[in-house]
Write a protein that binds this DNA or RNA. Structure first.
Ligand code: FES
Ligand code: FES
Lengths: 148, 148
DNA sequence: ATATAAAAAGACCTAAATATCTTTTAATAT
DNA sequence: ATATTAAAAGATATTTAGGTCTTTTTATAT
């Protein structure tokens, strides 16, 4: 559904949101290790998020990634848009060229309920919402038994 | 979500169910052309379905693919199982190693609604259900403007 | 029996996603 | 200014999904 790049992005951002601040930035190595993600690959993904101003970073000693006021309020959908694009939310679930109410595939009615439901979730929730869940102990972003 | 192989499979089976019978089998070439699908690739997929007894075929003149009584009643989920496997329906939407109620990711509650809803649809609907929709004119499996 | 038609099987090929490794750039502390 | 640290950038490798082409097998009609 979402690509690996995309879920890596989401989890990494939440991790950064949870563990960092303007004066305690967090290195790519730590993020990768804590989330069991391939560091260099993740690095690419985060680079792109920084370019899109979804995430902040600085180089050099005590550098690393962090998240500012504004970024925390970004909707998950925006991250998906940047990493994967939004085509999933418009595509036919049976792979027809067009998804349309007037020329629907046999799964259309059932499928769009879920597709649009997901859309709404992603379009509504922010990074901060996820961070809060983690901080309240109601959710986790690290694997239970850490082994890849 | 579903791989191309999988949606190709579903659409092809519905096409066969709709257009063929024991004494009017239907060739791979026609299926591919009518659905705008790559013939040889589709051929592989259908081969595997035949092996799994989800679809029937005979070689030689007037040979081709068809669907018997039993196959029409097969659930969509079975096709997904054979082509893609069922891992999607158990996997964490944020890519954590395990999806669990006790160690949930921050999207877990929202995501499983979607995941399990879809599961139910696929576990319930049969090939014949989709064929019927098409025959009743309530759905289509061919593209509108046929160009790949 | 033979020719023919169609699927099955096998061998490849291509593109995209995922992952790794190396070099460069820039920020900071000394 | 210099050394150091960490991200950015670039190049390359691997894996998986998707697709094509060729040969073989098998059923049928003649
Ligand atoms: S036409 Fe297939 S999901 Fe809308
Ligand atoms: S833990 Fe992520 S979806 Fe269940």
């Amino acid at each position: 559904m979402l690509s690996k790049s995309c879920v890596y992005a989401l989890r990494a951002i939440v991790y950064v949101g949870h563990n960092s601040s303007e004066n305690h930035k967090i290195g790519i190595k730590e993020i990768g290790e804590e989330l069991d993600l391939p560091v260099h690959f993740l690095s690419k993904i985060l680079q792109s998020l920084v370019k899109h101003n979804i995430l902040q970073s600085t180089k050099g000693p005590h550098g690393g990634f962090y998240i500012n006021e504004v970024s925390g309020k970004i909707k998950l959908l925006r991250i998906i848009e940047v990493v994967d694009g939004l085509s999933f939310f418009h595509k036919c679930g049976l792979g027809m060229h067009e998804c349309s109410d007037t020329h629907p595939c046999p799964l259309h009615d059932d499928f769009i309920v879920f597709r649009e439901g997901l859309y709404k979730i992603f379009a509504t929730k922010t990074i901060n919402d996820l961070v809060k869940k983690v901080e309240d102990g109601n959710a986790f972003i690290q694997n239970l038994n850490t082994k890849n």
